[in-house]
């Protein structure tokens, strides 16, 4: 499912009339959008609007109540483990193991360097600050080398310089034909971005 032409990803994610519940509460219905290669979709909305739930549904972690999600024209959620191979996930939690070093958490020197953590590679993650742990989580997204990035509040805990660095990382991914869907409260803007208000 990882199609690329001359090293550039060529993919299309299409959502058609999605509906999603959290417990008994309907979060949204008839939600349709599409994200193509080199595009970013920013999800905006109040707390509890369903941004994180939508990201989880796109990843196949939460089942949709209705609608269809297509990846390159095929039902994306028919084979979740195969669909997951196309996804790099950054949840609102960092999923960093404090007992492991930064390099053991993300065994990719290039990705660590990209987020400015190369010097901390041998340091146990428990000694990293909250912002550094977030950068380590971003490094994991880079290391996944997957075309579709699903990012839940990716800039939480980042200082202004790290936020700029993160935007640069996203731009690089988009210029390689990658796709990004990110929920965000902050005012980050990417060059090729659409906004979906929930």
């Amino acid at each position: 499912m990882n199609h690329s032409v001359l090293g550039i990803f060529v993919h299309l994610l299409t959502a058609d009339r999605l509906a999603l519940f959290r417990g008994e509460r309907l979060l949204f219905r008839d939600l349709s959008f599409s994200v193509g290669a080199g595009e970013a979709l920013l999800l905006r909305g109040a707390n509890g609007a369903g941004k994180s739930s939508l990201l989880r549904a796109i990843a196949g972690l939460t089942p949709l109540a209705a609608g269809e999600l297509s990846w390159d024209g095929e039902n994306a959620l028919k084979d979740q483990p195969e669909h997951a191979k196309c996804i790099a996930w950054l949840g609102h939690l960092d999923a960093v193991k404090p007992a492991l070093t930064a390099a053991e958490n993300v065994p990719d020197a290039e990705a660590l360097a990209a987020v400015g953590l190369a010097a901390y590679a041998a340091l146990p993650a428990r000694l990293l600050s909250a912002g550094q742990k977030r950068r380590l989580a971003i490094a994991r997204v880079i290391a996944a080398k997957a075309p579709l990035w699903l990012l839940d509040e990716p800039t939480t805990g980042l200082d202004a310089a790290s936020e700029q660095q993160f935007i640069g990382i996203c731009e690089t991914h988009l210029s390689a034909g990658g796709l990004i869907i990110a929920s965000t409260h902050s005012s980050i803007e990417l060059n090729v971005s659409k906004t979906l208000n929930l």
Partner: peptide, 12 residues
């Protein structure tokens, strides 16, 4: 608790 379960389920 630390969010790794999501990553495990998305590991392919």
């Amino acid at each position: 608790e630390d969010g790794s379960l999501d990553l495990l389920l998305l590991s392919g």
